[in-house]
Design a protein around this nucleic acid. Structure first.
Lengths: 269, 269
DNA sequence: TACAATTTGTCCGTATGTATC
DNA sequence: TGATACATACGGACAAATTGT
């Protein structure tokens, strides 16, 4: 609470009073560019949020009060709030009872953001399809082993459902169902960090990979592999599950890396 | 180019013209909350960027033109631009020749963002220290094996330097140097995706973990382990590097999980 | 059902800082 | 030394959404 001014130790001369007196000649050396006011406000509020001074669910002062407290205009406060909102640190609603509230940490939003960032990075010289598949090949076999060691009745059922759900291969949801098996395995480790590592890759593959050119028989083999892996996990056979997942991903990799499996943009094509 | 209006098919009645005519009674059922104009503008521009319609380095129209093109005010455009800038999709500079430019995809920014998001997630019931260490234990041994298989002269030198750099244990930079070895191993895989998976964890451990209570002799053993791993990687002994890294991380885990190694906030305490 | 209160959303006009030429 | 073109910031006003009376 009680937000402090962004800079300006003098209380009689609010920072950013339309036009102010900053512009000291020392700044001409371009040692460092002044950070805009909206950034300073955003940084200050972010520090209060991540520092625990503002707890999850807590309500921020309204925009008018914030603008007065920071000595900036309401427009500037709003730009700062937009930054925080786009980082999922606050959520804003309208109306009486509305306002800006500190958002609860949400892993799924992190996964979404990373997936989005991956979408613009992938297919550049820096990040190729092969890198994604190789990274997945590093994580998911170990995840399958861990899942086998820890699976209880509920997770086993979820994995079996993800592996065995019947689907029409011509239906787009079929492809989604396919990768949802891998997602389920990640989550079955009971380790959120492992899910957050692996899921963005799966998301990018799901949204940017074409299904054209893949024979139905190949998809049947994918299904069969999933069932085998699910059986190993259900039986608690960690080493076997790891091996089966590795073999499966290697086969998938050669399937994916055939030409024409990529789209330029999202799946709309 | 040629951005379209956010909604409002009628060209004679710009959306958000101070007061407008929307407010159809059908909306009273709260089927869906209307998205604010700044959000629609941001989404439209984002679609143009990720869709390739606006290439990296390309310049967006200035704020006045954008406000005219979208039929909204400059303030609304600015809020949209703040959202895109905070997602590292654009960069804005002032002055003539300035403006908003489509940013080049930058993996390091993704790593920073994920690290920041991890910082607010960690130490909640959803994500514990043990999860981070376990996830690292899954990734880095395999990464060490891959690094050994691929290391050329330059990367070997970098790894040796990260492992053998002398440091004062009482100096904070010593701790940084310690985890930089693990970062170097990740990067030595030549696979950016693996680095992006593992580095945020290392960042969080570096910024939020205390060094107090750790004996100097234990740090010496950490150094020794790093040297052993570096030797295996330099010799191209993948299996040995993987084993050594695994043993090292297991030992580190028991070291980290002792009481009192966590700080509530960033390292300032 | 109607009305009031509160808060965000959006607009406009204006002024200033900043970088380039 | 200007002149230009851009982002940055201000302040005030009104519209829209939500909740309560």
């Amino acid at each position: 609470m009680a937000p402090t001014r962004p800079s300006s130790s003098s209380s009689t001369a609010p920072a950013g009073d339309g036009g102010s007196s900053r512009a000291t000649p020392a700044a001409r050396l371009r040692v460092q560019r002044v950070r805009p006011a909206y950034r300073q406000v955003a940084d200050e509020l972010r520090a209060q949020i991540v520092g625990g001074s503002l707890g999850a669910g807590e309500r921020l002062p309204n925009e008018a009060d914030l603008s007065h407290a920071f000595g900036v205009s309401r427009s500037t406060v709003r730009e700062a709030l937009r930054v925080l909102a786009s980082q999922h640190l606050i959520e804003t609603t309208r109306g009486v009872q509305g306002g800006s509230f500190v958002a609860a940490p949400d892993p799924s939003r992190v996964v979404e953001d990373v997936g989005g960032a991956l979408g613009v990075l992938v297919m550049t010289p820096q990040l190729r399809l092969h890198d994604l598949l190789e990274a997945r090949l590093m994580l998911e076999p170990s995840a399958a082993r861990l899942a086998a060691q820890r699976a209880d009745a509920d997770t086993v059922e979820a994995i079996r459902e993800a592996a065995g759900a019947p689907r029409d291969l011509r239906d787009p949801s079929g492809f989604v169902g396919h990768l949802d098996f891998h997602t389920t395995v990640l989550m079955s480790t009971g380790n959120l960090m492992i899910t957050m590592m692996g899921q963005p890759v799966n998301d990018v593959l799901r949204t940017r990979l074409r299904r054209v050119g893949v024979e139905a028989a190949e998809w049947d083999r994918v299904d069969e592999w999933h069932r085998v892996i699910a059986d190993h996990i259900a039986a608690g056979e960690g080493a076997a599950a790891e091996e089966a997942m590795r073999d499966h991903l290697i086969a998938l990799r050669s399937l994916y890396e055939r030409d024409g499996l990529w789209t330029d943009g999202p799946t709309d094509t």
